[in-house]
Design a protein around this nucleic acid. Sequence first.
DNA 1: CACATCCATGCCGTCAGGCTATGGATGCAG
DNA 2: CTGCATCCATAGCCTGACGGCATGGATGTG
Lengths: 306, 306
Amino acid sequence: MDVDTRLLRYFAAVAQEGNLTRAAQGLFISQPALTKQIRQLETLLDVRLFTRSRAGMTLTEPGRALAAGVPGLLADWDRVRRETRSAASRAARVLRVGFLASAANELTPRITAAFAARRPGWRVDMRQAPWSDPTAGLAAGDVDAALLRLPFPGQEGLRTETLLTEDRWAVLPDDHPLAGRAEIPFSELWDEPFVAAPPETGPWRDYWLAVDAREGRPVLIGAVTENPDDWLTAIANGYGIALAPASAARFYPRPGIVYRPVTGVAPTSVGVAWPPAADTDRVVQDFVRCCLDHRPPDPDGPTDAP
Amino acid sequence: MDVDTRLLRYFAAVAQEGNLTRAAQGLFISQPALTKQIRQLETLLDVRLFTRSRAGMTLTEPGRALAAGVPGLLADWDRVRRETRSAASRAARVLRVGFLASAANELTPRITAAFAARRPGWRVDMRQAPWSDPTAGLAAGDVDAALLRLPFPGQEGLRTETLLTEDRWAVLPDDHPLAGRAEIPFSELWDEPFVAAPPETGPWRDYWLAVDAREGRPVLIGAVTENPDDWLTAIANGYGIALAPASAARFYPRPGIVYRPVTGVAPTSVGVAWPPAADTDRVVQDFVRCCLDHRPPDPDGPTDAP
DNA sequence: CACATCCATGCCGTCAGGCTATGGATGCAG
DNA sequence: CTGCATCCATAGCCTGACGGCATGGATGTG
């Protein structure tokens, strides 16, 4: 009696959604395809899992029994898969490091160089994470360590060390009325439209919109983008402005875009993070050591910033 | 990243066997098909799971990590599947009862009739189990209760009640030298060839060969059969003799076959069994009650035996 | 009564899984 | 040294499953 995890995912989606059409949209397949798959699962188990009605799909009693077990099965498979990948990385002497955007700025190459010197034969695999994952793959177990922005949601379950702190600046189109100012109080930006990350990025999005520095004022969203490139383009095209770490001026310069210091928002930090399970992992700890050894003496940023 | 349990079964088989060809035989597929599947799993995970050599397939380090997790995944899926089936039976008001051979003999129809009277709307689904499973599907969770021979291996983890006890008789071809005897001491059968169940049925096979009543003498196997029909045919054809419950003379009469009482072997019992989890299950307990209510007063067999 | 919203069905193209036959590598026995 | 056995990999083919689109049937709703 074999089953595909795909079938279980489909079932879980329909069970949760209670609606074939919407579940199919969420799974990026057509509704008839999903109909067929659910029927196939029912045939396979010889059990009626749903009662169909115009109102949608309602779980039967056995359907509820299955729905209770499936998420655990999928999670277990995911765990085993990640453990296998981790073992593979380790066997290949690869340290997987997740990072967000510009990672630890100018420190990054120096950290990896120091690690290479400390662990000959090992290779660092730097993986850029999407904005939607503020843990840069660490929470999902996709990487052994991560360079990321502090603080982040879920930080309690992970070990972190701060590497550097820098101010947040404003990113403006160069024809913006405020583009000529040497420094801008954040309150003057409250009514400006912002180019934001997608809503599903949650706290990340709010953090870079500086929601908690707006004294409750609503945020004006001018555009939503998924990655730095679209983000800069949207700003250059005048859809809105944004906040960014000061170092973005060095890492993401672009014609038509200017970066200006902002007062009235808290600075942002970059840290290294690792899972508690890696506390005794010599390789991960070596990497952390390399990170800490290259912390800049000046807490406002790396000393060799251009 | 979806995977089929089939793929995991294949992987587990190769991991355990260390040999594609033999694993493929055990899985009833061709060796090239298995080669492709294993390679596909490696591609899917992007991990080399085996090192190939003339000596066979050896697990790599990540392969061992996967092999450690896969049996648990498969067991969990099986558990969830059985729970779903159980919920379905319950919802359909079906009590699944496993049984071996002639179950509780003449009692069986009376038990089911009593249960039908006690639980209107419920249906008893009687499922004959193969000889290879002395728990008649109970251990695997395929049934809610079982009518089976006592004692059986794995009995400790289950609840049992004895329903009837009967002597074991000899089953002989009618032209056998001992066929004319009214009663046969078992010691006179020690050197006779026996028609046995397949070796994989283990304790069941040994029990009906009465291995523990032979004072250490080796058993002579004249033929191996998988089911009662082949078994009787083999005996009629003179391949060997066998032991059987006395009631077999009533349930399995056949031209060319005679049943004779035997002394020197312990009698055999039929009991009802259920999992501890069903101790509080009203329906299962009703069925057990029906079984006990129809226990014959005479411990040597049902009173209405012909 | 038209319309919206469910799920089910029919038909078709594509691809993955299986089989048979065969090839390349390597160890072993005569 | 050579023929053979035993590994696993590859090639070519067939079938069946999965997915898409278009459409149908049932049932509330404005």
